[in-house]
Amino acid sequence: MAFNKNLKEILYSVAAIISALLLGALLIKLSGHSALKAYYYLFYGAFGSTYNIAQTFLKTIPLIFTGLAVAVGFQSGLFNIGAEGQLYLGAFAAALAAIIFSNLPGFILIPLALAAGALAGSLWAAVPGILRAKTGAHEVITTIMFNYIGILLTTFLLKNYFKEEGPVDQTKKIAEQARLPELVANTRLTWALFIAIFVIIIIYYLLNHTAYGYDLQLVGENINAAEYSGVDSDKVIINTMLLSGGIAGLAGSTMVLGVLHRFITNFSPGYGFTGIAVAVLGRNKPLGVLFAAFLFGILESGGMSMQLFAKIPADLMTIVQGLVILFVAAPSIFKILKNKSGIFRGDNS
């Protein structure tokens, strides 16, 4: 039955995507473009060649991490909007680790740099976690503030201590052996893809099959029942933020080790924020996040070619992307509305 339910959700999502594309086609048509051509290039851009497929995956990877980071927080009732800041800290720490320990061999250096990134993300998220647990300061506010602080802090440190000579605010390149090996030559699609999928699997098991994950979800579902049953909810909240921040940190470190090969200020086009949409779309489940991130990847790389070759204006492209997200996310929205209206059901049994 659980399987049936999952199947239903998948079928629903596919139907939602198709309806959104149909509605999008209508809009494209109305604005005087050829919908067929537009969607051809959407598909072509996403899957038309090995290179294009690699680009699609490349866009997917950071969103898997940030989406998962947000989803893990949600599962525990925490709204971690700070993935962006945690990502920057992670990227910065990974770059530093790779530069400082550049004489280590790759099989040590890569894990070390990845771990440094995860740790930095964790610590950056820990502060809002502790504030939430100990003082009740809401994590939405604190994580947003920590985004600004985090992004500016990395810029500050970079400019003052680690900047490479030249016009661009960036570190020097990391050593060859610190870079993640490419899966497809000259695409920058690297082992980061497997790391992302590996992390998805780990988190899936952690959430669904361990006492740790049970407590995490318990605190999210009913914090009073958690306390009643003997769970230290403060500890769970802090641990969840550590975990969430760590995953967001990995988004940064895999970007540095796989794509950028250095730290550059303001390199992220908002992966941390898009991660929120990915998490919502993926219903906060690890596998759901995987698919949602992939969908975003397709829309990103396909959208680019739609603009380039079908001459669809960028705004229209954004509308089509928005429609897909809206349609797929609709059940969650309906659910919220339904729960709300439940209040009004008369009852005096």
Binding site: Q217, L218, E221, N222, N224, A225, E227, Y228
Partner: peptide
């Protein structure tokens, strides 16, 4: 056995 079973005793979604 808590007096408020929905607040303490159960997790409705589990």
């Amino acid at each position: 056995i808590p007096s408020d079973r929905n607040k303490y005793g159960l997790v409705g979604n589990f």
